[in-house]
């Protein structure tokens, strides 16, 4: 196995954390549209890059790689950082 295989194994998309996102937002977020605060790209949350083998979950923009969201669950609660999301549009 070469390095690239290891890296590819780590790279999921936002659909892989659908359950966690639904827990946090109370709605299915995978079809929500998000705007990257770093580069302005628009992508469905399900299409973001998800890094889950880490102390928390990190969602990154597929266009620029910038961090759009971070979610950490601790024994005392859930912390969410959405500074990298200019907006999120949830569908009804």
């Amino acid at each position: 196995m070469n390095d690239n295989d290891v890296v590819r194994d780590l790279t999921l998309d936002g659909n892989a954390v659908a359950g966690l996102l639904e827990e946090v937002f109370g709605a299915d977020m995978t079809t929500a549209d998000g705007e990257c605060a770093h580069c302005g790209s628009a992508n469905a949350v399900g299409a973001l890059r998800a890094y889950t083998r880490a102390p928390g979950v990190v969602l990154r923009c597929p266009a620029c790689g910038g961090v759009i969201a971070r979610i950490v669950q601790t024994p005392r609660g859930t912390l969410v950082d959405l500074r990298g999301a200019a907006h999120l549009a949830m569908r009804r």
């Binding site: 290891v6 890094y51 083998r53 928390g56 990154r60 790689g65």
Partner: peptide
């Protein structure tokens, strides 16, 4: 040696 990462390599 587990690999953890918050982003691409």
């Amino acid at each position: 040696f587990p690999v953890l990462s918050a982003g691409p390599t």
